[in-house]
């Protein structure tokens, strides 16, 4: 037990140190920030998909509402950024609660319904009739709050918390219950697992992570339109990174995000004309030969992947 805790602490410290030190070696902090965003989002997807089997195509809805929630708290109520960011996370959790009936669906139905819900949120936020509240299609301007350095380190903290939460879930009875529900909800319920409550709790944790990350993203970006924070590509990236690394593990989504997002930028910068071809081929190969992600390579050899 003690060794496990020690390993968990090392994992969190390594992740934090990597991103605290990375700007010394590489000065494109925006890229590093976005990499953290995708690692945290893929871990959020991981909590839901990896542990409960629910694939949230509309995950970006929580990210977007977190970005808008935090921004509007700063703009309308003059909340300090860090507090507003926590508020953005809370608003995302609230949205998760409102949308929790979606969990009655499963499989493709849930994926499509969550996507539709995220689009509905997007259309509400960008609606010109709500211009006085959300600024509608004019987007958000946080120029007076813009602080890329502090927002970067706050994102490091959010990432560390996310990693810690995933580690906790993996180690806890709660995580075991979630996995039991994923494999066979009826049996889990018969064994006394409160399926609906536990699943809703996981859904809200996942929403809260996306909301916090969205708030940090808004603070770091400071000028953005609704399309930028409700773009479906954000959901797709988080899901692909999770699947590539291996859902249900901590290191899988971390590995997937670092490798694929690093590749996305390397190819996008050096050979943009081949980017879509290479990325597309990679995903096809993944689906064909590694449907359980890169982590399954190690698992096949009998190794335990954290």
């Amino acid at each position: 037990m003690l060794r496990r805790r020690w390993v968990d602490a090392v994992v969190v410290v390594v992740v934090v140190l990597a991103f605290v030190l990375a700007p010394q070696a590489y000065s494109n902090e925006t890229l590093l920030f976005q990499m953290m965003v995708y690692i945290a989002l893929s871990q959020g997807v991981n909590i839901l998909y990896g542990f409960t089997g629910y694939l949230p195509f509309g995950y970006v809805g929580f990210f977007g509402i977190g970005a808008y929630g935090a921004s509007l708290l700063m703009l309308h109520l003059n909340w300090p950024p860090i507090l507003a960011l926590l508020g953005g996370g809370a608003i995302a959790v609230l949205l998760g609660l409102v949308l929790s009936p979606l969990l009655r669906l499963s499989g493709a139905y849930f994926a499509i319904a969550s996507l539709a819900a995220s689009q509905a949120v997007y259309l509400i936020v960008s609606n010109p009739a709500l211009q006085n509240v959300t600024y509608g299609p004019y987007g958000i301007q946080l120029v007076s709050q813009f602080n890329p350095t502090l927002s970067y380190y706050v994102m490091v903290v959010i990432l560390a918390l996310t990693v810690a939460v995933v580690l906790y879930i993996r180690r806890s009875r709660f995580g075991t219950a979630l996995q039991a529900m994923r494999d066979d909800p009826v049996s889990a319920a018969m064994a006394g697992v409160p399926v609906v409550r536990q699943r809703t709790f996981a859904w809200m944790i996942s929403a809260g992570i996306a909301g916090l990350v969205g708030g940090a993203f808004a603070w770091q970006t400071s000028v953005f339109y609704p399309d930028a924070v409700f773009s479906l590509s954000i959901s797709i990236f988080a899901i692909v990174f999770t699947l590539f690394g291996g859902a249900g593990t901590l290191l899988g989504p971390l590995f997937g995000s670092v490798v694929l997002y690093g590749m996305y930028n390397t190819i996008g910068i050096s050979d943009p004309q081949y980017f879509q071809l290479i990325y597309g081929l990679l995903i096809i190969l993944l689906v064909l030969f590694l449907p359980d992600g890169a982590a399954s390579l190690l698992k096949r050899r009998g190794s335990h992947v954290l």
Binding site: A18, F19, A22, A25, Y26, N28, L31, L32, M35, F255, V258, V259, Y261, G262, M263, N265, T266, I269
Partner: peptide
């Protein structure tokens, strides 16, 4: 990988 993935 994190450092390498970012380029030079």
């Amino acid at each position: 990988l994190l450092i390498a993935g970012c380029g030079s």
